[in-house]
Structures are given as C-alpha cells and as structure tokens.
C-alpha cells in the first residue's frame, strides 16, 4: 500500500515538473496555458489521490470521512480548473493578444 502511495506522489510530482517546464519553455501566451491548466490538474489528481490513500491506511470511520473530504478537493479542482483556464483565455482574447504560430509549418 505504501508503495502505491509513493508511486502516486512521484508520478504527480513528475506531472507538476512537466507543467512547470512547459510554462517556462512554451512560446506565446496561449500555448503556455495548456501545460499550466491541465498538467497541474493531473498532478493534483494524482498527488491528492495518493494522500487520501495514505490517510486511509489505519482504517476507521473518521479516516474514511477525512479521505472523502480530501477527495472533495479533487472534485472541486476538476470543476474549477477548466473555468479558470477559460476565463484567462477569454481575457487574452478580449485584450487582443495574438497567438504564436509556427511560421515554418505554415510556409
């Protein structure tokens, strides 16, 4: 069980690392949103699942309630993250930011 928790946390950290590196390396504003909004959501999902599992190990009714509560964070993040991303994109669109295009491909 502990091994599973460690695996979840490490993969979550890896996703967060991908998100952070993506935010730095991506060119242009709109492309930066992709790793920021979505890889971070995935990282939260994995890490919080791992934490909820670890909390469940000495099983009791209290720890079950607490794990449900921890998992509620995941539920809320899954609802709110697309909304926040969309809101930022909308602000960028209305401010008239141009999006970075790959000129080589377009020719």
């Amino acid at each position: 069980m502990n091994l599973l928790v460690v695996l979840f946390l490490l993969v979550g950290v890896f996703f967060f690392l991908g998100g952070a590196i993506g935010i730095i390396r991506m060119p242009g504003f709109y492309t930066r949103l992709h790793p920021a909004g979505i890889l971070d959501t995935m990282g939260i999902l994995l890490m919080v699942t791992g934490i909820a599992l670890y909390n469940l190990i000495p099983f009791s009714f209290d720890s079950l309630l607490l794990s449900i509560k921890i998992f509620l964070i995941v539920f809320f993040v899954f609802l709110s993250s697309p909304t926040a991303t969309h809101s930022i994109v909308d602000a960028g669109m209305r401010a008239g930011l141009r999006h970075w295009t790959n000129k080589k491909r377009r020719g």
Binding site: Y30, L33, G37, I38, T41, F78, P82, V89, D90, M93
Partner: peptide, 9 residues
Amino acid sequence: TLTPGTITV
C-alpha cells in the same frame, strides 16, 4: 478544455 492540447476559447 480538460483534454490536454485543446482549450475552448
């Protein structure tokens, strides 16, 4: 939006 690589504008 949740599917990576695409964002609804």
